[in-house]
Each structure stands twice: as structure tokens, then as C-alpha cells.
Amino acid sequence: MVEATEMKAANHDTNSPAGEQRASERANILARVREALSVAAPADHGEAAAASSIPAVLPAVGATFEDHVALFQKNAVELRAEFKVVNDASDLVAELKRLAAEAGWRQVATHRGELTDAVCPALGLPTVTAKSGADKRELERCDAGITECDALVAQTGSVVVTSRSAGGRALSVLPPHHVVLARREALVAGLPDAFALLRVRYAANYPSMISFITGPSRTGDIERILVLGAHGPKRLTVLLLATPP
């Protein structure tokens, strides 16, 4: 019976222009949805009455900046990400230089931004800047991608980037090492705070991509054994600037 319906629908498609079909299938689906919903579902299992708020059920986060730093640190260790609080812009440069020397970076990628502009040139390395028309193969050859972020989430150890704040989509995932530069106020307690921050910042016009990055790229698809760097970065370093630049 299912087959027969599909056949009919398929025949119908070939006879009608694509646009018309799209419009009619939209109407068909919505009509079926409305028809189905005309019969009310039985009462729930009492959850509506029991439901509290999202922050109240999620893992506890602590109250102070220090609590949040400690929680982010704990999560980062568990996720095998690297996290460091640095005092000022010069410490940030020193830390980046240390990373560059240690890993032998030959070329890095970054984007235009207040923080990145302030520290990346000091590395003195060939730098690819993510911008319209940049070559993805070039980006792929970089040893590290250095980006800013919108938020760090203490609760989960996540870094929130968007296509607008972190140099598009590929920069934070294509190079083998992702280095995140975060301002003090970027550190938020929990996931609800991060979404609230995104709403305040972008509600009028959301970027095309918002990504919550938690730890380096990972897989457990072979015998549930953790391997880092499945497709994305093998290393994730988060540097939190304790004072404004």
C-alpha cells in the first residue's frame, strides 16, 4: 500500500514543474499534519506538571568567575583539550609563540578580529587570512587555525564559534590544531547562558553557522576506543585572556 502511494506521488512529480511540485507537496504535508493533529493526543505522563527549568536540571556550574574557570579547566582536561588563562596580550603572544615553537608551525591561518589582529602578526609566521575567495587547499596546509570565539561554556568545556566571529566555517575545523582566543567576558556558566548570549548578540541576524566545539575532533567507531583527530583538529587549545587587550 505504501509502495502504491509512492508510485502515484512519483508519477505526479514528473508531470509537474519543480516549483509547483514543491508548493503542492508543502501544502500536502501541512494538510496531513493538520488533519492528524485534529485528534488530540492522550494526556502526557505528568511531565508538563513536573517540568522545571533547563538551568535547574543541567549539571551544576558554580557562581563565580573562578568557579567557572575551574569547571572549564576540569572539563578541558577530561576532553583532552588544553586550557590556559593568560594575563594580558603580551602573555598571549608568548603563549602562542611557545605553541608555535613546540609544534614547529610553519604556516598558520587566522581571521581579521580585534584579538587575532593584536597577537597573530607577532608570531612572525606566514599567515593565511580566512576571507572571501581564500583557497581551501591553502587553509588545509596550515599547521594551526587561530580564531576568536563568542563564548566558552564552563558547564561542558565547549567553545562557541560562529561563521561571523571565527573566520567562517572551515578555519576552526580544517587545520590540525585549533587555537581559540577568548576574552574574559566570553566565559559563561552554562549552555543556557551561551544561547542567551547568542540571542542578545545576533537575534536580528544570525550567522549562517553557530558551532559548539567541545574538545578536539574524536571518534570511537573502532571498538569504542577513543582516537583524536578523526577529521577535524587533533589538538584544541583555549587561551583565556584575563584582562582586556
Partner: peptide
């Protein structure tokens, strides 16, 4: 506790975005 990447997509590359 949370997966490695949770990503929300709302459109193709928007004006001013580097890629996508």
C-alpha cells in the same frame, strides 16, 4: 556530556562571511 560538535546552520554563506 555533550558531543564534540553541535552546529546550527541557518543558511548558505551570508554576506561578510569568509566561506561556506
Amino acid at each position: 556530556l555533550i558531543s564534540g560538535y553541535n552546529t546550527m546552520y541557518g543558511g548558505p554563506r551570508q554576506p561578510g562571511e569568509a566561506d561556506g
